[in-house]
C-alpha cells in the first residue's frame, strides 16, 4: 500500500517537473512584462519536435536536447523583438489575439513539416528500462525526469535568489517602473529572460515528450495546463509555480488512478474554485498583494 502511494507520488512529481520546466519561463515573463503569452506552449512543442527529429535519426540524445533548447530560445528571442515588443503597450486583448495567431501559425508549420501524427522522441535505451530505486523498480525515464527537473529547479532557485541577475529580475517583477527609475535596463533583462524561458520550454518539451507527446494540437491542448501552473502559482512567482506544478502533477495523477472517468473535469473544477477563492494565485509576488 505504501509502495503504491509512493508510486502515485513519484508519477505525480515527475509529471509536475515537466510542467514546471515548461511553465517557468512563462511565469517570469507574464509576471515581468504582463504579457499574456498563449503561444508559450508552441515553444515547448517545437522543442519536442526537434528532439524527435534528431533522436529518430540516431543522433546523440543529449545533443538533441541541447538543440531542442537552443532553437526555441533563438526563436523566442526573435519573436520577442519582432512581434511581442509592440504588444507591451497594448492591452491584454491584443496580446491574447496575437499569441493565438502565433499558435495557429506554429501548429500549421509543424503539421506541414512533420506530418499530422504524434511524433515521438526516441529515448536512449537505458532510460526506457525500469531501474531499482530501493523499495521497488521504477521506470528509468521517470527517474530521469525527476533528477533533471530537480537539478534545473535548484539552479534556477539559486540564480533567482542569490545572483545579481536574480535580484534584478525580482526587482523588475515586483515593480518594473521603479526598476527602470534606478537605471536598470528592464528591456534587455526581459529579452534575456524571454530567451531563457523559451529555451527551458523547449528543453521541457523535449524531455517531457514521453508524457506530453509532440503532436500538432500540442500547443492548444496543453497551454491551459501551463497557464494553470502560472496563474494558480501566482503570476511572476517562481516558487508558486513550482508548488502549483507539483500539485497539478500529483492531483492529475491521483485523479487518473482513483477516479479515472471524472478526472479531467474535476481538475478544471478545482482550478475554477481555487481561482474564485484566491484570484491572485497561491503565492503571489509582493507587488500583486
Amino acid at each position: 500500500m505504501l509502495s503504491f502511494a509512493a508510486t502515485v507520488l513519484l508519477d505525480g512529481v515527475s509529471y509536475g517537473m515537466v510542467l514546471f520546466l515548461i511553465s517557468v519561463g512563462l511565469t517570469i515573463t507574464m509576471g515581468l512584462m504582463r504579457v499574456v503569452n498563449l503561444a508559450h506552449g508552441s515553444f515547448a512543442m517545437i522543442g519536442g519536435y526537434i528532439a524527435g527529429y534528431f533522436t529518430q535519426r540516431g543522433y546523440n540524445f543529449y545533443v538533441a536536447l541541447a538543440v531542442a533548447a537552443i532553437i526555441p530560445g533563438i526563436l523566442g528571442g526573435l519573436c520577442e523583438v519582432t512581434v511581442y515588443r509592440p504588444l507591451y503597450r497594448k492591452g491584454e486583448l491584443s496580446q491574447v489575439l496575437l499569441t493565438i495567431g502565433l499558435v495557429f501559425v506554429a501548429t500549421a508549420a509543424v503539421t506541414e513539416i512533420f506530418g499530422a501524427f504524434p511524433y515521438p522522441v526516441k529515448f536512449p535505451e537505458y532510460l526506457t528500462r525500469p531501474i531499482d530505486i530501493g523499495f521497488r523498480t521504477y521506470p528509468g525515464y521517470r527517474v530521469f525526469l525527476i533528477v533533471v527537473g530537480a537539478i534545473i529547479a535548484a539552479i534556477l532557485w539559486w540564480v533567482i535568489d542569490n545572483s545579481i541577475y536574480g535580484a534584478r529580475l525580482r526587482a523588475a517583477v515586483d515593480n518594473a517602473r521603479m526598476a527602470r527609475a534606478v537605471g536598470m535596463n528592464v528591456n534587455l533583462l526581459f529579452t534575456g529572460t524571454f530567451v531563457v524561458g523559451c529555451a527551458l520550454a523547449g528543453l521541457g518539451g523535449a524531455i517531457g515528450a514521453g508524457i506530453l507527446t509532440p503532436e500538432p494540437s500540442y500547443s492548444l491542448k496543453y497551454v491551459v495546463l501551463f497557464l494553470i501552473v502560472v496563474i494558480v502559482g501566482g503570476e511572476g512567482s517562481f516558487k508558486g509555480s513550482f508548488v502549483a506544478a507539483m500539485a497539478l502533477g500529483i492531483i492529475d495523477t491521483m485523479g487518473k488512478y482513483f477516479i479515472a472517468p471524472a478526472a479531467p473535469y474535476l481538475l478544471y473544477v478545482a482550478v475554477f474554485l481555487l481561482l474564485l477563492w484566491r484570484p491572485q494565485g497561491l503565492l503571489p509576488p509582493k507587488s500583486a498583494t
Binding site: G101, T107, E112, A116
Partner: peptide, 16 residues
C-alpha cells in the same frame, strides 16, 4: 493545414 497558417498570419497582421 495551410488555412491555419494563413488565418494565424492574418490575425497577427490585423493586431499589429
Amino acid at each position: 493545414y495551410f488555412w491555419e497558417f494563413i488565418v494565424g498570419g492574418m490575425l497577427i497582421a490585423t493586431v499589429l
